[in-house]
Amino acid sequence: MSTKTKKKVNTALVHTVLLFYTVIALFPIILILINAFKSRKGIFRDPLALPTEKTFSTVGFEKVFAKSDFVLFFGNSMIVTLVSLFFILLFGAMLAWALSEYKFKGRQLLTVFMAIGIMVPIRLGTVSILELMVSLDLVNTLTALILVYIAQGLPLAIFILSEYMAQIPDELKEAARCDDVSEYSIFFHIILPLTKPAIATVAVFTMIPIWNDLWFPLILAPGEETRTLTLGVQQFIGQYTTDWNSVLASLSLAVLPVLVLYLIFSRQLIRGLTSGAVK
């Protein structure tokens, strides 16, 4: 074989392997999505077929919306995720700035103290967190979840942001200081805008585990009013295991928003993963 054909064969082989794995990664998700739009008969007779005129049905979705409060759960997840995210980014950036810019007593100790949270999962403190929330009268409130998620997200945010902030050239801040600009406006008007790319990375990394979490909603806020989407779907499916239409529809409802967001922001996310994460 000439080198040219050999190269072609190799390229084809690489694409075959990658394509094969892409199918493995996507097949389960697509299977759920197409069957969610079928009648019960269609689901069982030919699971692999796309919905046709004969088998198309949205009865699953109708049942889900009738029997459970999906809109409420979705709203709860949105509130918890966005509010936590906002405070993680704000407080995280402030702390990262203090740790990377100012020399003060105990700085190193504080850095190590915050880094513990990257290695030790906050779940291990659940017994005390629950007792604390009981004594603060915060059980079954979204506030409880938000506070825990802020504490959970801060360490990684500080780690990534302070590395990034350390690279900001000194001249920028020194020029501002010569003009007698306050430390607060240096941070909010000069540093924060410059840190945007890193903030975007942190945002994606912290948002996903919060949105997907089952553990803390299950333990701190299991009430009907404060259920998040993940917990809501889990409980709903536990109740209606045998109703395949409803189960498939509820799974699709949980998957779709994430898929849409991912397709919009995938570039940002992957850039963050492949540049900021490994250093």
């Binding site: 702390l95 403190g125 604390l132 825990v148």
Partner: peptide, 27 residues
């Protein structure tokens, strides 16, 4: 006294200590 450092550090430090570090130690 560098008050701005305290302002930058305190909110995050407080939440992290109360809801993550302390519960871990308490456990």
């Amino acid at each position: 006294f560098p008050w701005h450092i305290v302002v930058f550090v305190l909110p995050g430090f407080f939440i992290y200590t109360l809801f993550s570090a302390w519960p871990l130690l308490d456990t």
